[in-house]
Write a protein that binds this DNA or RNA. Structure first.
Length: 422
RNA sequence: GGAGAGAUGGCCGAGUCGGCCGAAGGCGCUCGCCUGCUAAGCGAGUAUACUGGGAAACCGGUAUCGAGGGUUCGAAUCCCUCUCUCUCCGCCA
């Protein structure tokens, strides 16, 4: 949510910055709505002040029969106030919904551009494995080793669900543990295990609602949603709270499964693990002071990169352009991992600075001493998407004989296993 | 699922027959004093949002005692609905 006072004072500038996202967002209608609301609010409050004043006077009078006239007047005034309250509530709700559907302003560090093609490569790490055979996509590798079973996943549930078997299941679990241990023991994050379903307020706090309801799985008959990312429950841990300035930055790491409808991606990435309705992810979330959020994003990005470095897998970091960043983000880096089986880089992590956009929606603030509370900045990113990391391992570490070497760092988590064979 | 109890400021906790209650008191915290250090003691201050005025310090208005509605000139206090927490019983991983 944008600062309503910023909008009042800088509507044209805000509109221009939002236009750089390319989508058809508009701030038209804001001025009129805001003016009407404030006008009514003033009238309403003046009337209430009068009511309060008179009620106090009536209270002081012992003999109520002498103030029957005033009581009758106040009865009428109360009716007017009630009507105004009703109108005000509607205007407030209208204004709130308007503000909740306006995306964040792209930050100054975000390159301008209209699509994915305008994203800027920041750096590359490592190099593609030298394979002296034609590498296979992970679904072929995984199926041949009988560690990924797409057919049974589909039988159990439907398309975009997968059953991991044996060493495959172990590999997924090993990665989760490796990532959590790394981030908690080396990078200073506190581990959290949140609920996998959240309510509407939490979804609104991080920006999934009200605009993106169609991407979410909702429980029937309940206002509970399956989380599309741990970002939602973990960020909302501090919803409606005022943190101590001295406690910042606050850093949390959480493993959760993630559930996404993937509406509108029919036909895309239909094979393999890349696009599932359910996938595992270790998420990093940070709350910090506004002036520290740029550095915190770089730090968090580095923490996520570290996973791939430990696994010795080639990747690149992309700075997303204004046309490609998400609704709530001001700035985003994607980490794209090299997939030799598909001869391409694929997103394995997305790290964003939301500045005060989520903090304002979720009312997450901090306070230094006796000063006024201020909104924190929130930063989060995948550290990493686990399923896609399995993909990367299967494709990068596949051997000519169809086996897959297990990266050295992972072996302690795999019971010492060095290679997955049939 | 059945029965009951409760929800007040950072925390604990008072609030009688509705008005002088943004709310006693305590703890905590901040500042000052005192003190050889620590502890104790003394004094003052200590919610948030919106809004009007002001360069600012600050001053005024409105709202908020779980949420929403009702009664009333007036509700933390009365009534209704919901949510959550706790206790007991049943069931259950």
């Amino acid at each position: 949510m944008l600062d309503i006072r910023y909008l009042r004072d800088n509507l044209e500038e805000a509109e221009a910055r939002i236009k750089s996202r390319g989508e058809g967002y508009t701030l038209a209608g804001f001025r009129d709505l805001d003016d009407r609301k404030r006008k009514l609010l003033h009238a309403n409050e003046a009337l209430k002040a009068e009511k309060n004043r008179l009620s106090e006077e009536i209270a002081k009078v012992k003999d109520k029969s002498t103030v029957q006239q005033q009581i009758a007047e106040m009865r009428a005034t109360s009716q007017i106030i009630k009507q105004q309250d009703e109108e005000l509530k509607q205007l407030d709700e209208e204004l709130r919904m308007f503000l909740l559907t306006v995306p964040n302003l792209p930050g100054s560090a975000t390159p301008l551009g209209s699509s994915e093609a305008d994203n800027v490569e920041v750096r590359r790490w490592g190099s593609a494995p030298a394979l002296d055979f034609s590498p296979k996509p992970h679904w072929e590798v995984g199926e041949a080793l009988r560690i990924l079973d797409f057919e049974t996943g589909a039988k159990l549930t439907g398309a975009r669900f997968t059953l991991y078997r044996g060493a495959g299941a172990r590999l997924e679990r090993a990665l989760i543990n490796l990532m959590l241990d790394l981030h908690t023991e080396e990078h200073g994050y506190t581990e959290m295990l949140p609920p996998f379903m959240v309510n509407r307020e939490s979804m609104t706090g991080t920006g999934q609602l009200p605009k993106f309801e169609e991407d979410l799985f909702k429980m029937e008959g309940l206002d509970y949603y399956l989380i599309p990312t741990a970002e939602v429950p973990v960020t909302n841990i501090h919803r409606d709270e005022i943190l101590k300035g001295t406690d910042l930055p606050v850093r949390y790491a959480a493993y959760t499964p993630c559930f996404r409808k993937e509406a509108g991606s029919y036909g895309k990435d239909t094979r393999g693990l890349i696009r599932q309705h359910q996938f595992n992810k270790v998420e990093l979330v940070a709350f910090c002071r506004p002036e520290e959020s740029s550095a915190e994003l770089e730090r968090l990005l580095g923490n996520a990169e570290k996973v791939l470095q430990l696994l010795c897998i080639h990747y690149r970091v992309m700075a997303l352009c204004s046309g490609d960043i998400g609704f709530s983000a001001a700035q985003t880096y994607d980490i794209e991992v090299w997939l030799p089986g598909q001869n391409t880089f694929r997103e394995i992590s997305s790290c964003s600075n939301f500045e005060d956009f989520q903090a304002r929606r979720a009312a997450i603030r901090f306070r230094d001493g006796e000063k006024k509370p201020e909104f924190v900045h929130t930063i989060n990113g995948s550290g990493l998407a686990v399923g896609r990391t399995v993909v990367a391992i299967l494709e990068n570490y596949q051997q000519a004989d169809g086996s897959v070497i297990i990266p050295t760092v992972l072996r302690p988590y795999m019971g010492g296993m060095e290679r997955i064979t049939l």
